[in-house]
Amino acid sequence: MDAIILQILNGLDKGSAYALIALGLTLIFGTLGVVNFAHGALFMIGAFCAVTLSRILTLSHTIIDETKTDFLGNPLKVDVPYVHDIFGVAAGNVIIDWAVPLAILFAIPVMIAVGVIMERGLIKHFYKRPHADQILVTFGLAIVLQEVIKYFYGANPIPTPAPEAFKGSFDFGAAVGFDPNLIIYPYWRIIYFFFATLIIGGVFAFLQFTTFGMVVRAGMADRETVGLLGINIDKRFTIMFGIAAAVAGLAGVMYTPINSPNYHMGMDFLVLSFVVVVVGGMGSLPGAVLAGFLLGVLESFASMREVIDIIPGINQIIIYLVAIIILLTRPRGLMGRKGVMED
């Protein structure tokens, strides 16, 4: 029982990341009809927003410590962050420690700008082109973006830890009557889950309860008719692209303490996120979220030693296996509706 609860918890936080990325993908596909293979790169850029802010906060000047030597035997050069000079050592360290949460504020405008530039500068020229062309151009863009990041930040993962206050793990087992240490879960992953829930709720509320959202939803259902009513739907869709980029970026920012970011992390999530979108139902926002969590939980269960012992290799194929089964039984995905996103 404890093992099952543990894997559900695992699946929920893994599913949070899938759901956030798939939500953005679906927003873009639903509004603009574009299959955006650069969406994983947006997740990666979001993560590197956190790395960048962390580097900005640790920008330093060098002082020479004559009492110590470096590896060549020369007097040791010690970096002193400017925030220490400005706020004092104690307050400066707290600011540096909170780089990841602060990066949320930094990433939102950056990611919206990246999204809008990407849409206006490149992707809008491919609206009327076949999906194959869109896939090729966005996949190419993803490779370019990751190579640019690698050029500036290197290929190695860059540790970007959570604030000290959120380190360690919560003993769920002890809290609900199991033995201690049986069900432990890191605080930051719990935060990630609630953060993802908040963002997903926010996007749904925005689409459901604002006039802007209503127009966008109308545009998703029938773009031509909305255009005939004199509404500039293209402008709204561009903004939605920016919002989708911000959602992916925020997912990336908050993911950095879970795994040290590297230039390739977007690609690691991209294929899985597309599977999530297809399983959820093309163009269905609730479907993307549901499928994200469902596949996250199933992937976690498939990684259990007891399961692998029975079906070796199941951990590597479970998501694709479930995708095949769902598409065979429900060709439009879990929540795809007839006539939506179909020619």
Partner: peptide, 9 residues
């Protein structure tokens, strides 16, 4: 995480 979580168990 799904490989590490069961270690203590």
């Amino acid at each position: 995480s799904s490989y590490i979580a069961p270690v203590l168990q």
